[in-house]
């Protein structure tokens, strides 16, 4: 893109797929306010929630073209642009939210990956926001080990990896759009689904699927994308402020996320949901071949090993 001329500042347009009550929205609007204060009003961020500017895949194109300045995008979306991102989307790769966040902050691990789209797409990955531990929830339960899932139709996103993941965990993966899951669970078309606790409760799936098995098979991850040309046009001082405020945003987001998760668990319990622990080792063992088959290149394996080492 065109660079060189420093830009004085502007109100950046940030596209988000979540609603105004979601931790991501709250953390990101605070990000904008702190940025504005720290740059004496030169830079600001306006967050557009609810996908009003388009679904993630389309908004990434708009950020790439510069019509939208920033966007939150899921790992699956970035995987379509650079397969190397796939490693961070694998089940069991992160031990938990803290491990995930420490990896995302380690330039030695993710640095090359986060700048890999700058040349070809004019996209810079500023960092990531956790989307929490994902668990299985079912109409009938409890689910304690893989064989308990035999024959159960479990909803997954339309993704090759997630289909393989659920099949490996013992269920029958059923791709379906998220909006249809409630009625499908109710009608018995589905036996279960998998997600984080916040979505489980905000989508009211706790009304129809009362068993949550704490499989923690995956830690969800969203990325913050920024148009690279815009970043280059910032003065070094302003850019440093932006990066610093972003790191604070990640911390605030984790706090909000954990608090909302607690609240979701409490309200689910109050409405009759039963949470149970599982034979985690058995599920991880079942998922090992899925991880193995995804690590097709040396780069991917190296990245995976660096991430695993960071957990120790």
């Amino acid at each position: 893109g065109v660079s060189g001329n420093a830009q004085e500042g502007k109100t950046m347009v940030l596209s988000l797929n979540q609603s105004e009550s979601h931790p991501s929205y709250i953390a990101l609007t605070d990000f904008g306010e702190r940025l504005k204060a720290a740059t004496d009003g030169r830079w600001d961020i306006k967050v557009y929630p609810n996908e009003t500017l388009g679904a993630q895949q389309e908004v990434i194109q708009l950020v790439s073209d510069g019509s939208v300045d920033m966007a939150i995008a899921s790992g699956t979306q970035l995987e379509n642009l650079n397969p190397e991102f796939a490693t961070l989307n694998l089940p069991t790769v992160f031990k938990g939210i803290d491990h995930q966040i420490s990896v995302l902050r380690d330039k030695g691990i993710v640095g090359p990956l986060f700048s890999s789209l700058e040349e070809s797409k004019d996209l810079t990955v500023l960092g990531g926001l956790t989307q929490g531990d994902r668990n299985l929830y079912t109409v009938k339960g409890p689910i304690k080990e893989p064989k308990d899932l035999a024959g159960m139709k479990i909803r997954v996103q339309e993704s090759e990896l997630h289909i393989k993941m659920i099949n490996a965990m013992g269920g029958a993966a059923t791709p379906m759009s998220y909006g249809e899951v409630y009625t499908a669970l109710q009608a018995g078309v589905l036996d279960g689904a998998e997600n984080n606790e916040i979505s489980y409760v905000t989508q009211k799936h706790n009304e129809v699927a009362k068993y949550v098995a704490r499989t923690r098979h995956l830690v969800g991850l969203d990325y913050m994308l920024v148009n690279s040309t815009l970043l280059e046009e910032m003065t070094p001082e302003d850019r440093a402020i932006l990066e610093a405020e972003w790191q604070k945003t990640v911390d605030e987001h984790v706090k909000l996320w954990n608090a909302d998760t607690e609240k979701a668990i409490e309200s689910a319990k109050a409405s009759g949901t039963k949470f149970n622990d599982v034979d985690k080792a058995a599920f991880d063992k079942a998922l090992a071949p899925v991880v193995e088959s995804a690590l097709t290149s040396d780069d991917a394996r190296e990245l995976y090993e660096k991430i695993t080492e960071a957990a120790q």
């Binding site: 194109q61 790439s64 073209d65 379509n80 642009l81 070809s120 339309e158 993704s159 090759e160």
Partner: peptide, 14 residues
């Protein structure tokens, strides 16, 4: 045409 150009390398999943 700009759309074709911007998405030429992006795979349709599946």
């Amino acid at each position: 045409l700009r759309g074709v150009d911007l998405t030429w390398t992006q795979q349709v999943s599946g």
